[in-house]
Design a binder for these strands. Structure first.
Lengths: 154, 154
DNA sequence: CTACAAGTTCAAGTCAACTTGAGGTCAAGA
DNA sequence: TCTTGACCTCAAGTTGACTTGAACTTGTAG
């Protein structure tokens, strides 16, 4: 009934800490109205947005990236299924890439390490065409690679 | 021929920054002898160890975990293929879990978000049985979850 | 002999995503 | 009236994996 929820109600329902919610607001991922007292009031639809944020994080996206995605949502109405689907459609590719890397690593457990060829400069497994040209500062692997890629805008 | 390499030689051959190598040594992941000058000299076998470290990092392991694994290597001889294999064997499970999660997330892109059911408290996709009981400080997702799990020793 | 590159140590800085703490406001109940 | 509890802001702290900078030493080439 009550369409506006307090920060702790949202926190409980979403599993996201109140401090994190404030942080998300500060970073522009979510917005809130204010009660007369200055307390935040969130529309129920924020829960769906939070679900999206959590989801995207599990895919390894940074908050900046997520904000950019959320900015694509229509401002004139509460986003519906098709709006969300438009955002998340392209992610399938991302997930597939990640799965592919894992499969490669898994294969390497049997092949590469087992057979004894494991060597940084020769092994196609450990050095899959991108370790040579380092990106940002320091070795950025795994999720790190993802982040570096997006920080540079690719 | 020369069996001992300088830190920059190792850095070049491994793609791991010299500063990172010093850091790894400080953290006990690798060891070095010293030349009369006080400069580090690494045996060539260190390259294999570094390959392992890089590999493990791409699997989302922390340096502490990796060190623990490396400590299981025999001290009485340069580790061979079977030694490495014994370490990395159990990881297949880990990788499979990760792949499974990705598959689940991928399925959710079509199902959950598309159909409009996306909701933190109801969705089996976003809330796969562990978001309720939070672990460490703050939301630890994705790799974060992995780390948290191991930090707590499970 | 003098550069200069390559190495050393140690302390401090970086980044993301939060958390924690101090200090303050406000409304409702005993 | 007093207290409790929920909320606020703002600054500073946390974690992991490094990087960067300052100040210094060594080995080698010209």
């Amino acid at each position: 009934m009550d369409n506006l929820l307090t920060i702790n109600q949202i926190s409980r329902r979403s599993g996201v800490a109140a401090s994190a919610l404030r942080y998300y607001e500060e970073r522009g991922l979510i917005a809130s109205e204010r009660a007369g007292s200055g307390h935040r009031r969130f529309p129920r639809a924020i829960l769906r947005k939070l679900a999206f944020i959590v989801f995207a994080q599990r895919l390894g996206m940074s908050l900046d990236e997520i904000r950019a995605e959320l900015d694509k949502l229509p401002a004139d109405h509460v986003p519906k299924g098709r709006d969300w689907a438009r955002l998340s459609g392209p992610w399938t590719k991302r997930i597939d890439e990640r799965i592919a890397e894992l499969e490669r690593l898994k294969a390497g457990l049997a092949e590469c390490i087992g057979c004894g060829c494991l060597s940084l400069d020769r092994c196609r497994l450990v050095n899959p065409a991108d370790r040579a040209g380092q990106l940002g500062p320091g070795p950025l692997f795994w999720v790190g690679m993802e982040r570096a890629r997006s920080r540079r805008g690719a």
